[in-house]
Design a protein around this nucleic acid. Structure first.
Lengths: 197, 197
DNA sequence: GTCTATATTACGATAGAC
DNA sequence: GTCTATCGTAATATAGAC
């Protein structure tokens, strides 16, 4: 818990420490005392860098959300057949999730107890809805199997994607990287989704 | 938040209220004050029924774990071809998850901050490992596609199953029941897993 | 079985020295 | 930029009356 770390913090470097502790203990389970121990500075020193605990949460979830929304703006997410765009967005979402792992992890766990959390949940729902729209479009094109109900498939696809934060650890030896995991997700999910298998 | 509910509690009926609030606000984000408001009795009255907050958590996660382990003891989980046993366990796990939704939801969210939480995480890991062993056996039988790495497939299958707690709500109109969701999971996942598609 | 009142500790945040 | 000291509040839990 007490991480050595001298040589002055910035809001960003402090955020890295905080997000790690938030993910270990949960946001509500983390006190400023926990953060100060992990950062190796006193509680009051933290307030020199950020306004408080909730600002750290806000910075973290916004970073995650910005990364996710950026995917929807990419060219391959906007042009082409819907089912292919869906597959592309699925792949890139997994990659962002792996690249920004601690931030997305925190985002996926907020419960809505504060304004910041509710705002994060709302933006996240917006992202989900945009992907769900892609799925709907692909179904209308006749590119998705019809024996699995659409809303259900959307939920399960997200479930598979989002579950990556529960086990992926970049440091583990021989671990797959973002692209490999994305491959596996796309292969597994789209085998059950695409009309052609 | 303030749920009307007069006519004396038992540990079990109090548990039902507590687990609902735990799932709404998170365990660490829930105070005894929150619980007392939701139950409609005073804080101190809660201590008449249970030893404290952590006992409520312990009762809840144990109920979830008992339900999950019971699946592994069922006949179809113990005899037959491994891939079929895996499919059966997958289906039944989803059903238990839906039947015991609030309890399993809580189980899947514990972070390990207390002894109770660490104990729950350990038992849950044990369950996961037993299912993972089934997957390994099915692969050895040549019944699983070999182009998706085994550990990865295990993780993603669990991710899909466990994600059900994030969105399934038994009260929503026209919602699928446990068996239907289990069907969808099995169809989607095993299309990408089984050698024959 | 439920209550009010309270003990005790932990929390988020601030004041002010260096 | 970091510290010690501290404020005010909210937390878990208990005491004891009814």
């Amino acid at each position: 818990m007490t991480t050595a770390r001298r040589d002055t913090y910035t809001p960003q470097t402090l955020l890295e420490v905080a997000v790690r502790v938030f993910n270990e203990r949960g946001y509500d389970g983390t006190s400023m005392e926990h953060l100060s121990k992990a950062a190796g500075i006193s509680k009051s020193s933290i307030y020199h860098h950020v306004a408080g605990k909730e600002e750290l949460l806000r910075r973290a979830v916004n970073r995650a959300l910005d990364g996710l929304f950026a995917v929807l703006s990419e060219e391959h997410a906007r042009v082409g057949r819907a089912v292919d765009r869906l597959e592309y967005v699925t792949r890139r979402t997994v990659e962002v999730l792996v690249d920004e792992l601690p931030y997305v992890t925190l985002l996926l766990r907020v419960r809505g107890n504060t304004d910041t959390e509710r705002w994060a949940m709302e933006r996240r729902r917006d992202f989900d809805h945009q992907v769900a729209a892609l799925l709907k479009e692909a179904a209308a094109d006749g590119d998705l199997r019809s024996d699995v109900e659409l809303r259900l498939a959307t939920r399960l696809l997200f479930g598979m994607i989002n579950s990556v934060v529960e086990w992926y650890r970049p440091d583990s030896r021989g671990a797959a990287d973002g692209a490999e995991i994305a491959d596996a997700v796309v292969r597994l999910a789209f085998a059950g989704l695409r009309t052609d298998g």
